[in-house]
Computed example of a mutant assay.
Amino acid sequence: MSTTPTAVITGASSGIGAATARSLAASGYRVVLTARRKERIEALAAELTEAGHEAVPYALDVTDRAAVDAFAAFLDGRGPVHVLVNNAGGALGADPVSSADPADWRTMYDVNVLGVLHITQALLPALTASGEGTVVVLSSTAGLATYEGGGGYVAAKHGAHVIAETLRLELCGQPVRIIEIAPGMVKTDEFATTRFRGDQDKAAAVYAGVAEPLTAEDVADTVNWAVTRPPHVNIDLLVVRPRAQASNYKVHRES
């Protein structure tokens, strides 16, 4: 059985998830890549394997509890799980509360909140058994402060924040750390495009005039740093924003 520490990353098919998988693999972790898009994680696993790292792809929808339980059973007997990075998430729409689509809110809650709950519950026994478990919740600055047009996403990310905060209290004394990383403005290939349902103009407007928004690699580097602190060091909450962003609604934009 491999003695290499194992890290499970959800939403590993692109963006922050894929960047985190590359970063942790480079730091010596055996990475288990999960996402709905099987071909994406298989391609990433092949890339990492070719580079000499251990990578296992596993197609998974974190909103499907039966599938999550089957994934936990798949991992059982393959050694302890040391790190879980709850990265799967996303936003849909930017409508005001008065006209927002409840279906969008439900979808965001399912993946950002219940998805974190499902996979964390399922893997907690393995994380605890490792003796040095770490749960990372990738929330958002949206989970700490609201903004117009963000009601559904803000509510969901507040839910993710509360899971991390509560779990840290409930597991006090157990060998499991709960780390929350809350990124601000991150420019990835898909986040804003998905939020605006493929409208490239609206997606581009989010970052207009911002010289250097965060990248997926910036956030992955932050996750890696937090995870690789000595086991007795817990980074409870780390907010990371680009220099140009002072808050969710105050951003310096160059003309």
Rank of each mutant, 00 (worst) to 15 (best):
A216W: 09
T228Q: 08
D201C: 03
T193P: 00
Y207I: 00
V186Y: 00
E190F: 09
A211G: 11
N234W: 04
V223P: 11
P230R: 05
Q174G: 07
T228N: 15
P230F: 06
T188A: 01
D199K: 01
D221Y: 10
T215N: 06
R197D: 03
I179N: 05
T215P: 05
E180R: 13
T222P: 07
A220N: 03
V210G: 02
W225A: 14
V227M: 07
E212G: 10
V176Y: 08
A182D: 05
G184C: 02
N234Y: 04
F191L: 14
T188C: 01
V210Q: 02
D201E: 15
T222K: 07
L214T: 02
I178Y: 09
E180Y: 02
G173K: 09
Q174D: 12
C172I: 10
E190V: 12
V219W: 06
D201I: 11
A220M: 02
V176Q: 07
V176D: 07
L171P: 02
A205F: 03
A205V: 02
T193I: 00
W225N: 10
V223G: 11
V186E: 00
G209T: 09
P175L: 06
P183W: 09
E212D: 13
T193Q: 00
I181L: 15
E190I: 07
V227R: 06
G184F: 02
T215L: 07
P183C: 07
F196E: 00
T188D: 02
I178L: 14
V227G: 09
H232W: 11
V223E: 09
K187T: 02
W225F: 15
R229M: 15
D201H: 13
E212L: 13
E212Y: 10
V233I: 15
Q200D: 15
G184E: 01
Q174M: 12
A205Q: 12
P213I: 01
A208R: 15
A182E: 04
T228K: 06
F196R: 00
D221V: 12
K202G: 04
I179S: 09
V206I: 14
Q174N: 10
N224F: 04
A182W: 04
T188G: 05
P175T: 05
K187E: 13
C172A: 15
A220Q: 03
P230I: 04
D189I: 11
E180C: 08
A216G: 12
Q174I: 03
T194K: 06
G198V: 03
A203N: 05
I178P: 08
V233N: 06
F196V: 00
D221T: 15
I178M: 11
I181W: 11
V219I: 14
E190M: 10
L214D: 05
E180V: 04
N234T: 15
R229H: 11
C172R: 15
P231S: 13
D199T: 00
V233C: 10
I181H: 12
F191H: 13
P213A: 05
T188I: 01
I178C: 12
V233W: 08
P230N: 05
D189H: 14
E190K: 13
N224G: 12
V176C: 10
G184Y: 01
A204D: 06
Q174H: 11
G184P: 00
G198Y: 07
A203T: 03
A211W: 05
V219K: 05
E212F: 12
A208F: 12
R229Y: 09
P231E: 06
Y207W: 04
V233F: 11
T215D: 06
T215K: 08
E217I: 05
A205I: 02
V219T: 03
E190Q: 14
